[in-house]
Simulated scan of single mutants.
Amino acid sequence: MFEDSEYSEPAKVFEEAGHTVTTIEMEQWKTVKGKQGEVEVTIDGSNDSVKPEDFDALFIPGGFSPDQLRADARFVS
C-alpha cells in the first residue's frame, strides 16, 4: 500500500549515493507492489529478523503504509 514514486525515486537516490536499501515488512521474501502497480519489491527481511542498530536510517514511503506501520507495535518499537 505504498505510493510507487514515493518508494522508487528516493530508493534510487539512496542507491546512487552508495547506500544499501533493505526492504522490511511483516513477511520476508514476499513480493509487494505499489498502489499504481508500477513498482514491484521483494522484501529482504521481516520486522522480526532485523535490528534497528543495523541501520543508519529509516525510510518509509508515502501512501497507506505509514498508517499500517503505526498500528503495529512491533514496527513502532
Rank of each mutant, 00 (worst) to 15 (best):
F2M: 07
A17H: 07
Q28W: 00
F55R: 05
V50T: 06
W29F: 10
E15I: 11
F64V: 12
P66K: 06
F59K: 03
E16R: 15
S8A: 14
F2Y: 11
H19I: 04
T31Q: 13
V32H: 10
Q36A: 15
D67W: 00
V13L: 15
V76M: 13
H19D: 05
K30R: 15
N47R: 07
G18L: 05
D56C: 02
M26W: 04
E38C: 08
Y7F: 15
I60H: 03
R70Q: 05
E3G: 10
Q36D: 13
F2D: 01
D48G: 06
D72G: 00
E27S: 08
Q68R: 07
D56E: 14
F75K: 01
T20P: 00
D48R: 11
S77I: 00
E53W: 02
R74V: 08
E53N: 10
G37I: 11
E6I: 06
G62V: 06
N47F: 09
F55N: 04
F14G: 03
D4M: 11
V21E: 03
A71L: 07
G37C: 12
E9C: 09
R74Y: 00
E27K: 14
E40C: 10
G18Q: 05
E27C: 01
V41Q: 05
S46H: 02
G62A: 12
F64M: 12
H19W: 14
T22G: 01
F59T: 04
S65D: 01
V13R: 15
K51R: 14
D56L: 06
G62E: 05
V21R: 05
D54F: 01
S77C: 00
T22S: 03
I60G: 02
S65W: 01
F64W: 08
K30T: 11
F55C: 03
E15R: 15
K33P: 01
A17S: 15
E25M: 07
T20N: 10
Q36S: 15
T22Y: 04
V41S: 06
D72W: 00
T31H: 10
K35H: 10
E27D: 10
A17G: 07
K30A: 10
S77G: 06
H19N: 12
G62T: 08
D67R: 09
E6K: 07
G45E: 13
L58E: 02
I43S: 08
G45D: 08
V76T: 09
Q28A: 15
T20V: 10
I60L: 06
D56V: 04
L58D: 01
M26Q: 14
T23S: 13
Q36V: 11
A11L: 06
G18R: 07
E3D: 15
E3I: 08
E16P: 02
G62Q: 06
F2N: 03
P52S: 09
T20S: 10
G63F: 02
S49F: 01
S5H: 13
E38D: 12
F59I: 05
F75Y: 13
Y7T: 04
I43A: 08
F55T: 05
M1K: 12
E38G: 12
T31I: 12
R74H: 05
K35G: 14
A11V: 15
D67I: 03
A73Q: 09
